[in-house]
Structures are given as C-alpha cells and as structure tokens.
Amino acid sequence: MSQSHFDKAVSCFSKAILLQSHQVEFYVQRAEAYLQLCDFQSAALDYKHACSLEPQTEAHPQRLAFIYYLQGQCCFDLGMFLEALESFTKAAELKPSFRLACLTALGRYSDCLQLVNNWLKTDGQSADLFTLRARLHHQLNQMTLCYHDLRSALRLKPCCPEAQALLKRIVPLKNTYFLPAHRGILYRRLKDFTAAIEDLVLSVEVRGAGEDPPQGDLQDNSEDLEEDAQTQLVLTYNDFAIQCFSRGLYGEAIMLLNKAIEKQRNASELFINRGGVD
C-alpha cells in the first residue's frame, strides 16, 4: 500500500483474511486497496463485512456510504443513471447528510429545495441555509426567490462571502434591474406569463430594495422604467388571470387579480374582472 502497489496489496490482504478471517482491519485495508483501484463494488463488499463484524463502529458505515457516493458519481458521469440512482440511494440510507449531495449530483434540484425547506423549519434560520436555498433557486432559474434568500442571508450575516458572491452574479451591475424588466415585457408579449412575472418581480424588488440607481445615459430613464415595470407586472397578472379564467381555473384567476389589485388599487378594470370571476 505504501508503495502504491495496490494489486499486490489486495493479494496479500486476501491471504491474510484466509488465515484470520475475523480480523476486521484486514477487510478495511483491502477495501481501501480496492478503492484505489476504483473497484467500488469489491470495496463496498469488504466494508459491509467489516460492518457485520463490528456493528458498533460508526466509521465503517460512514466509509461505506462514501464509497457508494463515489460509485454513484462515476456511474452518473458514464451515463449509467439507474446504477447511479441505486448507489446514491444506498449512500443516503447509510448517511442521511449525503442526501442533498446525491440529489444535487442527479440534478434533482426541486427535491433538494424541499429538503432545505425542511431544514429551515426544523433547524431554524441561518445564513448558510438561506444561501444554500438561494443557490438552488438560482439553478432552477427562480431569480426572485434567489434574490430574497440572499437578502435574508445577508441580514443574518452581513459579511457572508458566499451570499455576497452570488448576489453579485445575479445583480452584477447597478442598472441590472433594466435587463429583467425588458425581458419580462417580452415574455408577457409572448404570453409566457410565469417567466414574465419572475423577471418583472425581480426588477421591481431589486430596484425597491435600495440598489444604487443606474449611471450614465440610463440614469434619466430609471424612474420611468421602474414605473413601467410595475405597470407591466400588473398587466401580466391581469392577462394571466384572464387565461386562467378561460381554462376554468377560477381560484387561480382570483388570486392573480388580487395580486394585481395590491399593486394598483386605482385600476377599476381589475375590480371589474375580479367581479366577473366571482
């Protein structure tokens, strides 16, 4: 092992096991040699045997979980997704803290999000958990939720470097709220209302959170665009509600119209539309 002759090490440990099959350390050492050879299956079998000989030792199942996790990563990289899922499942069963890493490796960000939501309920709020959830929202392209979680993280820990770095990525320039505002308007015209709402809410929230106003040629138009983003958001809620109503989704239509009215209480047509739904 010390000279990296892992094949020979496996042979020697196998002979030792034949002579003294009750020695747990022999199985552990052979498993580590197998691991160096990327023979995850054999390494897992030896650690399972070690677990049966010393069930009270916590280190063995934890190492076994790590082996399953590595095996899952390799299978996933090779496109063997069913085998990867099986290995990740075994790893998570042995070590629940691996569950998030396994789900992330499989690209199951929605399941990861549910897991972090549960942690926030059971373990309490923390900057690390808010930042983690912000990363998941970012992966799911839920930029408004990502932004709010980063703000929550920085309120709890103003010097949190991970939150600050991600916030700079989603708000890289002082006039960043212009970009989602324009994009949201385009999404509304394409009748992609969910995407439009996401971008328009982000634009309004970023501007309303006290971000510095834009500089240069865009400065004079900042207030006009902010007001337009608010108006476009209300119109998007209204258009989305009409679409829901036409599909018989009356509860969703009322909810969307309520959101529109919250933003613009002096628009009589919104009340008329809500009355028509009722």
Rank of each mutant, 00 (worst) to 15 (best):
P213Q: 13
H137K: 11
F6K: 09
C146V: 06
D224F: 01
N117A: 09
L156T: 12
L145C: 11
T131Q: 05
W119H: 08
E252L: 11
A59P: 01
R247L: 15
A65V: 02
C112H: 11
L186R: 15
F193P: 05
K168T: 08
L200S: 05
F130T: 03
N266P: 01
F88C: 09
H22S: 13
R247S: 13
D39C: 04
A163G: 05
E226W: 09
Q71P: 05
A229Q: 10
P161M: 13
C38Q: 15
C75Q: 13
N258A: 06
E269A: 14
L156C: 14
K48R: 14
G248R: 14
Q243I: 10
S4G: 00
F88V: 11
K174I: 14
L115P: 05
S222V: 10
D111A: 09
L249C: 09
D199E: 13
A134C: 13
F76Q: 10
E252K: 15
A59N: 12
D39Q: 10
F6W: 15
G275W: 02
Q243N: 13
S87A: 15
A134G: 11
L156Q: 13
R63H: 12
Q215T: 15
E198D: 06
K15F: 00
E32M: 11
S110Y: 14
D128F: 09
L37I: 02
L85G: 01
Q232K: 14
R135I: 02
R189D: 04
G124L: 04
L233N: 02
Q20V: 06
G251S: 12
Q230E: 01
T144I: 07
S4T: 11
I197K: 14
E198W: 03
R135C: 10
Y237E: 01
L37G: 01
C51T: 15
T236P: 08
E198G: 06
M143T: 13
A181W: 09
C112P: 07
L103T: 11
L64F: 03
A241P: 07
L82Q: 12
L106D: 03
V234C: 03
A92C: 07
S152F: 00
D220Q: 14
C75M: 02
Q23P: 00
L140E: 02
D7P: 00
N273C: 00
Y109V: 05
T104S: 08
V277R: 09
D199N: 15
F66G: 00
Q71V: 05
C12K: 04
H22F: 03
L18H: 11
Q71T: 04
L140K: 11
Y109N: 10
L270R: 07
V10G: 01
H182R: 15
A91G: 03
K263D: 07
L37H: 02
D239R: 12
Y68L: 00
R207D: 02
A44I: 13
L166Y: 05
A241Q: 10
E58W: 01
D111Y: 04
Y109Q: 09
I272T: 14
R135L: 09
G216V: 10
I170W: 06
D149K: 12
Y68G: 02
S42T: 01
I197R: 13
D128W: 04
Y109M: 06
H138Q: 06
S2T: 12
R133P: 11
Q139F: 06
E25M: 12
T231Y: 01
I17P: 07
H60D: 00
S2P: 05
A127L: 06
S268V: 14
A153T: 11
L200V: 06
Y34A: 01
